[in-house]
Amino acid sequence: MEQRLNLMIIEDHEIIVWALTSIIEKYFPNSNITAVSSFSEGIGRLRDGYNDLIILDIKTPGGGTPKMITDLRQIQSDVKILIHTGLPEEEYAVQYLQQGANGFLSKNAPYETIIEAVRHVLSNRKYISPAIHRIIAENFLAPNETSHKKLNFEVSEREKGVIRLLLKGKWTKEIADELELKQTTISTHKGRIFEKFDVTNPIELYIKIQKVMPELLT
């Protein structure tokens, strides 16, 4: 039986809202779905109650920048955010994922992909389409194709635990709570991990881990 899902759709196109609602209700029949047509209304509704997931069109009136992710998380820090947009992936995906979105889905993708993306995000995994994967690889790996051979990939068991949680999209506080450590300790581990793998954010780390330590993705 599918889990109950409290979901908000921030989207100003009625047909898209109808399609998303129909698909989600089919696979999550106990869903509580709220639909709003502007970002400011979404902010207001988020203050009114808890949501497991927000499906966000970044071109909704009142939005349009990666700061939308920060604004939503200031109200509910653990809300999952799946971007669903008609804007080109190659121009927008990386910046929104870097800002903290849990997934990025093109409106040009097949409709069945929506449920795949929702399930990924609700399972604390990043949803990255094959197209986005190629974009990230081209942006972050191509200039350093051989550099990973020179780096120190000796990591402790504690660092492996932190890496796995980072790759699930967990925030520093969430990792600290789960591992029963101080946030400062996790921040220190995170800094060392980024230094060892020569990366600056979890997306780059994901791609690098996939190349050199894929066992940490399981």
Rank of each mutant, 00 (worst) to 15 (best):
R4V: 11
L166Y: 13
Q183D: 09
N152L: 01
V162K: 04
E14F: 14
Q3R: 13
Q183C: 05
I135D: 02
I55D: 14
T70M: 02
I16H: 07
E157L: 09
K170A: 14
L87E: 05
N102D: 14
Q3P: 05
K190S: 12
V79S: 09
M213Q: 13
I24Y: 15
Q183G: 10
A19V: 12
L20W: 12
E157D: 12
T218Y: 00
S147K: 09
L181S: 08
T218L: 00
T85S: 14
L87G: 01
I24W: 14
L216K: 00
F104R: 02
K168L: 00
N51S: 15
Y50M: 08
E174G: 01
E11W: 11
I203Q: 00
V121E: 15
I23T: 14
I115H: 09
V155H: 10
P29K: 01
K80N: 01
I175E: 10
Y206R: 10
G64M: 04
E90T: 15
V155E: 14
D177Y: 10
D71A: 02
K107W: 12
K173E: 04
R119D: 15
S37G: 06
L72V: 01
K80Y: 11
S187P: 06
L141W: 07
F104K: 04
I132A: 07
E116M: 03
L105G: 02
A142M: 04
H133M: 05
N152M: 05
V212D: 11
L20E: 12
E159A: 05
W171M: 10
D177Q: 09
I55A: 08
E91R: 07
S106E: 09
I24H: 15
E2Q: 07
V212N: 01
G62D: 15
H189I: 01
S187C: 07
D57K: 00
N6Q: 07
V155F: 12
T188P: 02
T60V: 09
H189P: 01
